[in-house]
Design a protein around this nucleic acid. Structure first.
Length: 574
RNA sequence: GCGCCUGUAGCUCAGUUGGAUAGAGCAACGCCCUUCUAAGGCGUGGGUCAGGGGUUCAACUCCCUUCAGGCGCGCCA
């Protein structure tokens, strides 16, 4: 329901002589305790009209009252200081909002702005042989949520898991495996066996430099496509992918490409050739670099002294490949902010190469997840594995369910859904740039602004609907007369909030900020719970009951869909 | 040293892009289940918006500056 254009129309009638460009942005919600629903500040008009703001507002209110044609959706306009407060025909507004949600169904909040456009999202991008920890979850949840948000807006989305599957560390790992490991152990402990060997290698290589040389030798064998080296490496890769696929299934995220670093190694010579051809490479301290002084950035190292490629070289190849393969409208890199400089350099080099599409590449930087003791470190064992967190969350949920509902006998999937939702919610709750200090107590708290709270509210709405025997009908319309039952107090606040949902989804995509949706559905849940306590939904008045059930169904719909966009499931009972 | 980011209630965070009296949750305390799910609702206390300048009718929001913390700054990714 587009009330803003209604207000602008009214303003045009009231102030035909004024320039109202940009007026839409200054419309705000009227504060608590004041008359009206939405407000327009008149201060800016005072310059062109050469009149005091309060006089403008007073005159505006008077002119509105004298309008013959009336104000459409607007019932009344009051002046208060320098503000004009607009009161809507609330019944009409409520009916319009609820009807819009009901007829749009699950599509409510979506749009077709992305039609015919492709967005690539590079996210999660796991390293082979590293178990999934909370830092990976932050990345994966952000990227997975953006994936769904852009889909919702009509884009085709390509999820890219840019595997970390190239580097000396895999030579090291083969060395460790050969020395201390066995295939039996690998099959038994999977990725945790790999982790154990990785840690041991680092400890022992500090005393024994020979190990590092062996590691480098094994890595050379991988590069030379030596069958034994490849066999072992692919085994490691498979073990890792089994592990992470399990996590992805549980989180509900998906990827359309698994092309990692090793995939791009043979595309590097072409990039180097192009850089050389465009005269961008200079030799510095034995290495080949692109000078970025004109960007006030340090030079980008393209080739090492020994001629080997670097991270940025592979990223240049990958960017080129993605543009060629997907012809993206935007290419998002969900990577922690530690790599801010890297991406500035990457995009600068692309610009120097004359790739105009460098403007479409965006680094989606997010904060770090750390432990109270400091940064997470897999090597030091200072790390929280996602599996453990999800397990604890499910166990706690299971206990809560048993305590609240002794009759419930499920297979544990409900507890799993709720527990996982709580963990995901905790990382998509606040602005992505903020650091997170991992705290079990916070993640496992299910009260207040949490995933389970939103889920619970959804389940509560479902419960009311089912108790009333309510059947949703897509074509059902609520009349303005009936809408009077949902146009006061808490119900109306709730409706105003529901009406903002599509704008919030659009903003989440625009700002690459899923937390906007998290907060908004939490607000809707709070408003609904207030409404639930303030008014009875099922009463002995049929018209009233129907109106409130439709509002409840609209809430259920928006909560469910909003939760889906932040990767939460929406159980109907809990 | 240079660059980027962050700083709002005891804690974790919002603050609709410059608008009216800065809001939530957690934690503390007090209420509310023979009304539709108490993983809920209501209430109380809690603020020099890091400090200082400036721009503006109006600044948590924009500019300058100081302070505190985080991250990064050549052969890892």
């Amino acid at each position: 329901m587009d009330y803003k254009s209604e207000i602008i129309n009214a303003l045009k009638q009231i102030f035909p002589e004024s320039d109202l460009a940009g007026a839409e942005e200054s419309i705000t919600v009227t504060p608590e305790g004041k008359a009206g629903d939405y407000a327009f500040p008149c201060f800016r008009l005072s310059k062109t009209l050469k009149t005091a703001p309060n006089a403008i507002a007073a005159a505006g209110a008077e002119r509105f009252a004298g309008l013959k044609a009336g104000g459409g959706l607007i019932k009344a306009v009051d002046a208060d200081g320098g503000y004009l407060n607009f009161t809507l025909y609330r019944e009409a507004f409520s009916a319009a909002v609820v009807n819009e949600i009901m007829s749009a169904g699950e599509g409510f909040g979506g749009s077709d702005e992305g039609k015919g456009r492709t967005v690539c999202i590079d996210y999660s991008s796991v390293n082979i042989a590293k178990p999934f920890h909370m830092g990976h979850l932050y990345n994966t949840a952000l990227g997975g949520s953006l994936y769904r948000i852009f889909k919702k807006l009509g884009y085709s989305v390509v999820g890219i898991n840019h595997l970390g599957d190239y580097g000396t560390q895999f030579g090291n790992l083969i060395t460790a495996y050969k020395k201390w490991g066995s295939e039996a152990e690998l099959n038994k402990d999977g990725i945790h066996a790999l982790l154990k060997w990785y840690v041991r290698f680092h400890q022992e290589s500090e005393k024994d430099e020979g190990l590092n040389e062996e590691g480098r030798a094994w890595f050379r064998r991988i590069e030379a496509k030596d069958p034994e080296a490849l066999r072992i490496f692919n085994l490691f890769k498979e073990i890792t992918l089994i592990e992470v696929r399990g996590v992805y299934d549980e989180l509900g995220v998906q990827f359309d490409s698994w092309d990692g670093e090793s995939f791009f190694t043979d595309k590097i010579p072409a990039v180097v050739k192009e850089l050389r051809g465009k005269d961008l490479l200079v030799t510095s301290e034995g290495a080949e670099v692109v000078d970025l002084e004109s960007y006030k950035l340090p030079p980008a190292l393209i080739l090492k002294k020994d001629g080997a490629s670097l991270y940025i070289t592979r990223d240049l190849a990958a960017a080129e490949y993605r543009k060629k393969t997907y012809d993206f409208h935007k290419c998002l890199y969900v990577v922690a902010y530690q790599q801010n400089l890297h991406f500035k350099q990457l995009f600068a080099v692309l610009e120097l190469m004359g790739k105009e599409w460098y403007k479409d590449c965006v680094h989606v930087a997010y904060g770090m997840v750390s432990m109270p003791e400091g940064a997470m470190s897999t090597r030091k064992g200072q790390v929280v594995f996602l599996k453990d967190v999800l397990k604890l969350a499910a166990e706690k949920t299971e206990a809560t369910i048993k305590q609240k509902n002794p009759d419930y006998h499920g297979d544990g999937s409900l507890a799993r859904q709720i527990g996982t939702g709580a963990v995901i919610y905790s990382v998509l709750q606040s602005s992505k740039i903020k650091d997170i200090v991992f705290d079990y107590d916070k993640v496992l708290n299910f009260e207040g602004e949490t995933g389970p709270y939103v889920m619970y509210t959804h389940a509560r709405a479902c419960s009311v609907l089912s108790k009333a025997g309510y059947k949703p009908v897509k074509t059902a319309k609520i009349s303005e007369t009936a809408a009077r039952h949902i146009s006061g107090g808490e119900a109306f606040a709730l409706i105003k909030r529901l009406n903002r949902y599509p704008a919030v989804v659009a903003a989440a995509a625009q700002e690459l900020e899923p937390s906007l949706i998290t907060r908004h559905i939490t607000d809707i849940a709070q408003d609904f719970n207030k409404f639930y306590f303030a008014e009875k939904i099922i009463t002995d008045n049929a018209e009233e009951t129907q109106a409130r059930l439709m509002l409840t169904d609209a809430v259920r719909q928006v909560l469910k869909e909003g939760m889906r966009l932040i990767l939460l499931q929406a159980p109907e009972r809990m």
